[in-house]
Amino acid sequence: MTKNATLAAVVVAAAAAALAGCANDGTYYRADTYTAGQVNRVQEVNTVEIIAVNAARVAVPNSSNRDTAQIAGAVLGAIAGVAIGNHNNHTTHARVMGGLAGGALGGLAGSAVGGDDTTYTDGVQIIFRSAGGKVLQTSQVGQPCEYKTGTAILVAPTPSEARIQPNNPYGCPRR
């Protein structure tokens, strides 16, 4: 393998490794994560009584990360392909063909490292009693050790959304 080809392969491999960490970890969907539009706004808050906490898995979309990885892989592959095509044959045709081939292969590699359209993250199923006495259930992204039975705060940004805040902030082992 020539020096330019080796360099291009190393660059593409490094980019693929960097893109492999692009999976959506679900942080956006946590009860204690807020969008910019939710900050500095008044939201209705209630206290609830958590009756039970069960482990769950939450499916979160990963399509935007996968698309980003595919585009980045295609661009990096095209650059590497042009470099390889230019090495021994300085014609425009060789560069174009190298770029097209590299872009196609890079796009496939980006799709592979970008993961599936859906990823799964740790979640909890929380059974709670509202102030009115109703027993309800909600699913949240988080870990069971972040919650415990007893009083918790429920934030309701919309009538159909329930965000029970973690009520056991030091319950998870430190990493």
Rank of each mutant, 00 (worst) to 15 (best):
T33G: 07
T35V: 07
V39H: 03
V39R: 08
V42T: 14
V45G: 00
V45M: 13
N46Q: 15
E49F: 10
E49C: 09
A52D: 15
A52T: 14
V53Y: 01
N54E: 11
A55F: 00
A59M: 07
P61L: 02
N62K: 05
S63N: 07
T68W: 06
A72Q: 06
A78V: 08
G81C: 05
G81A: 05
H87T: 15
H87L: 06
N89W: 04
N89F: 03
T91S: 15
T91Y: 00
T92S: 13
V96R: 07
V96D: 03
G99W: 01
L100N: 02
G102M: 03
A104T: 09
A104H: 00
L108W: 02
A109K: 01
G110W: 00
S111T: 12
S111H: 07
A112H: 09
G114Q: 09
G114N: 09
D117R: 14
T118R: 13
T118G: 09
T119F: 03
Y120D: 08
G123D: 00
I126V: 09
R129Y: 02
A131L: 10
G132Q: 14
G133P: 12
G133T: 08
G133W: 02
T138A: 13
Q140W: 03
G142Q: 01
Q143Y: 05
P144G: 00
V155K: 01
T158G: 07
P159M: 11
P159D: 12
E161R: 13
R163F: 02
